[in-house]
Structures are given as C-alpha cells and as structure tokens.
Amino acid sequence: MLEPHAGQPVAVLVSALDATVYASDTMETRIADVDWVGPRAVAHDAVLSWASDAGGVVPFPMFTLFASPDSLRAMLRERERSLDALLDRVSPSQEWTVRLFRLDDRATAALGLTSPTLADLAQRARDAAPGQRYLLERKADELKGAELRRVSGETAREAFDALSPLGERAVRDALPATPTGARPAGVAVLDAAFLVRRDRTDAFRTAAADLAGAIEPRGFRVELSGPWPPYHFVRDDA
C-alpha cells in the first residue's frame, strides 16, 4: 500500500513486480497463456473487492503498470481532484452485472405468447383450408427469426428499464459475438452493469429475481453477478 499524502484517507494498492516478467516482449506471449492470466485476474479482483467492501475504490484495469513509485505519485498528484470526485461518487455503491440470455428452443415455443403477429397467423392457419393453411404456416416459419430478434430487443429494453431506477447509474455493454454451434447458455441479448447503493442491494436482487420470473416463460434466462467493485463506473463517460 502506498500513501501518496500523509494524513489523507486515500491510499493506493500496489504490488511491486519483477520488471523482467512484465516486460513488453515477455508480456506479449504471457497474455495468451490462460493459466498465467487467469490467476492474476482473480488476485486483481480479490484485492479490489476487499477494498470495495472496506469502503470504496477506484479500480484500474489489469496491467496498469508504473515505472516507479515516483511515476505513480506524479499521476496521483495530477489526478488528485478527479480521483477524489470519483471516490465520492462510487463509494456508497457497488456494481452488479445482469446478463440476459435467450434460450432458442423455449423462446421459439413461446412466440405464440410474445408475438401477436405469429399468434394471428397461427389462428388464421387453424381456420384456413389445407392449401391456405400450408402457405400461412410457411409464412409464420419465415417470420420466426425476425420475431425472435424483435422480442429479444424488447425484453432486453424492458429488463434494463426495470432495473435502472434501482441503481445510481446503469450502462449497457456491447454484446459478445454469438458462437455458432451448441449454445447451452443461450444467446446473450443484454449485458448491463448497475451501480447500486449498498443499502439498496436487497431491493435490487429482489427486482432481478422478479424480472427472472417474469421473463422465464418467454424463454429468457437472467444471470446476476456481484457485488463487484465499480469497474464500469469510474470513467468520465460512465
């Protein structure tokens, strides 16, 4: 731990590293090594989570390295005011992450409930003569993909809007590329982070559980993780 200013209640959590291990040329190969990066990511998060639980913390990403304690102190002097403001902003809260996944089989089966267009087509097909029924069923099949995407977008917006008021801030991340092939976890349709006051944690978790219950019949699954240090909420635009 490094205390940049005597008497101030702010400190920096630092580790001294072997310059040869973290040198540019060796890092380029090490960062591709799952077994090397993973434990360091766990340790990085454990320290930040401890600090977050203990009061408040402004997280820096992994691999933010300084050449010397003096260069670190220089950065702190330069940014003292903005870092203080950030600490004031985030310390009463913690971060929670909510991800929404579409389970294609279930979501497709639920389209009769979630898609008025397809429900109407299905009704008309049931009432139609065999030849007309075939055409209507083909049309319904062609629309299913678009309707799944539309319902996904609506459900994601609904989830984000339902949880946002319980947080001080909220942000949506870009969705990861969907891998082809088997997708047991479902297709990600929302990846969002919420800065939630510590005294509203229970209310937020209850709201997430209510949301999960509401959208599960539509073929969507909610994944909640937290509390995290405020990783998403310490940038100027967050």
Partner: peptide, 22 residues
C-alpha cells in the same frame, strides 16, 4: 465474467507517467 471486468474496465490513464506493457 471476471476477466470481462478486470481487463477492459476501470479508469484508464495515459501519458508518459504510465508504462503500457507492449
């Protein structure tokens, strides 16, 4: 999930006081 948080989030600083690894 953890990597998505610790690698690409958090306050980003730049300038000659920081060493970017590679």
């Amino acid at each position: 999930d953890l990597l998505n948080h610790v690698l690409d989030k958090g306050i980003v600083i730049s300038g000659d006081v920081t060493i970017a690894v590679a």
